[in-house]
């Protein structure tokens, strides 16, 4: 087991596991957020129920933070390994994989940057909604979570930041999910196409789901 943490393959396995765990969190988070569409009452009830879990919630939060930090740490470690593996870059480098939507050869080339972007967003997100300490906002005293969310997301700064971050998230996951499965050895010639499409759908379903929530809140306020 110790070996796993030290080798390139082991680190990628752990990276995949932590990544998929975070995906699980995102899916839960999104399903909660979708309750915003069900109206103020439903969402507030959900939020209250969630907060009434007490210790359990704290434990989950700590676990989540640890997973996130591990994911980040592994990313830094494997990236460092890869940087060392090529000390001098090519003067010219072209992909052989055809045309990409992104410069430089697809989402896989942007994992660290998109990941760091998401990390930065996460700090903002926690300041906004967990600690409620955004200096430029006046948080409502009543109306529950629903009102707070509305207040935060209605700010143009938030809208821009959240929007950008969610697109980054989509890009990150569009490679991340498929890559995680590959790192865990999930591959079969019969199912690979399906796994690929499924991973892509999952990635953008999460990102677009959150974007819908964001859009709806902004439009409806």
């Amino acid at each position: 087991m110790i070996r796993i943490c030290c080798t390139s393959v082991g680190q990628k396995v752990l990276m995949a596991l932590t990544g998929l765990a975070l995906c699980g969190f995102l899916a839960t988070h999104l399903s909660g957020n979708l309750l915003l569409f069900a109206g103020e009452e439903a969402f507030n009830t959900y939020a209250e129920n969630l907060h009434s879990m007490g210790v359990l919630l704290k434990a989950a939060e700590v676990g989540l933070l640890a997973t996130f930090l591990a994911h980040l740490g592994l990313a830094v470690s494997t990236t460092a390994m890869s940087r060392r593996a090529r000390s001098r870059q090519y003067d010219e480098k072209e992909s052989k994989q055809g045309v990409f939507a992104l410069p430089g050869g697809g989402a896989s080339n942007w994992m660290l940057l998109t990941g760091l972007g998401i990390g930065a967003f996460l700090v903002l997100h926690l300041v906004d909604l967990k600690f409620k300490m955004r200096p430029d906002l006046v948080y409502p005293t009543d109306g529950g979570a629903y009102a707070t969310v509305n207040t935060v997301l209605s700010s143009p700064v938030s809208f821009a930041a959240y929007g950008v971050a969610l697109i980054l998230l989509g890009i990150h996951l569009s490679h991340g999910v498929r890559s995680a499965l590959q790192s865990l050895g999930v591959s079969h010639s019969k199912w690979n196409k399906l796994i690929e499409i499924g991973s892509m759908l999952f990635a953008w379903a999460i990102a677009l789901g959150f974007i819908c929530v964001l859009g709806w809140v902004v439009l409806s306020s």
Partner: peptide, 11 residues
């Protein structure tokens, strides 16, 4: 040997 880690880019 100092090879990098695999990022599953399929390049």
């Amino acid at each position: 040997e100092g090879f990098g880690s695999c990022t599953n880019t399929s390049e």
